[in-house]
Design a protein around this nucleic acid. Structure first.
Length: 235
DNA sequence: TATTGATCATAT
DNA sequence: ATATGATCAATA
């Protein structure tokens, strides 16, 4: 397989992704000529990065969509035995000192989620990583209802941060979107702004999509969770 | 056991 | 340090 050139159209991208459905991660690693980790503890981004290479993503480690020419973001989606996502999905980091001046329309969350290639993969911890199978990817954009719901959460969460109350924000808030730490460790700090406009050192945070939200995306495409147990999403 | 808070790797 | 890619693991 080797590293691919960038796909020129969405349909080319989707074809490439579909050609990987059913492969194990061991087979993907072999095709790419990269070793497959025995577990993900020290290789949490392995599948996402391997997939970027396999599909010809153009923006590794840069603040741009994975497929720049297409405006498509790639997100892997680990799913459990019942075909339900077993983790939340990281969306983007938050500029704590400026988000109060941003609105939903120009937000990074909206931009990132405008067009996403979701790539399901078996994520149950009792399946050895090399044996996990890749599912059938799907291209997605939020419906009008999705966008209304995301905007509602975003405005609530961004509003709290904008008021300088980030320290009172927990992962419990938000129906679909939530804010959680996104850092090397709990000692990490970055600049935040308090209610008086004064600068302070805050734990870095990011926006995440709850698993219940991504579950709906898969269900809309593939049917109710568990309706095809063991064979969900082509995995 | 589902969810929140913490953490790990790599590239620039 | 900050961006990218996420999952781990303690807690409720």
């Amino acid at each position: 397989m080797a590293v691919s050139r960038a796909p020129e159209t969405e349909s080319e991208l989707l074809s490439r992704a579909h050609a990987l459905a059913g492969l194990t991660l061991a087979e993907l690693g072999q095709r790419l000529g990269v070793p497959v980790p025995a577990d993900l503890t020290r290789a949490k981004g392995w599948f996402g990065q391997a997939l970027e290479r396999a599909l010809g993503a153009t923006a590794s480690s840069r603040a741009a969509p994975d497929f720049e020419a297409l405006g498509v973001e790639l997100k892997t989606l680990p799913v459990g035995a019942k075909g339900v996502p077993c983790e939340s999905t990281f969306v983007c980091t938050i500029d704590l000192s400026r988000i109060g001046d941003v609105d939903w329309t120009t937000s990074l969350v909206r931009k990132k989620l405008a067009r996403v290639l979701w790539a399901p993969v078996e994520g149950a911890r009792d399946i050895p990583v090399p044996a996990r199978r890749i599912g059938t990817a799907l291209l997605w954009s939020p419906s009008a209802d999705d966008e209304d719901a995301l905007r509602f959460d975003w405005e609530e969460l961004a509003g709290i941060i904008g008021r300088g109350d980030v320290e009172n924000l927990t992962g419990h808030l938000g129906r679909h979107l939530q804010v959680r730490p996104k850092a090397a460790s709990s000692r990490s700090r970055r600049r935040g702004v308090d209610g008086e406009g004064a600068s302070f050192a805050a734990l870095p945070r990011g926006f995440y999509l709850r698993a219940s939200f991504t579950a709906r995306i898969l269900a809309e495409r593939f049917g109710a969770p568990g309706s095809n147990a063991g064979d969900q999403y082509g995995v």
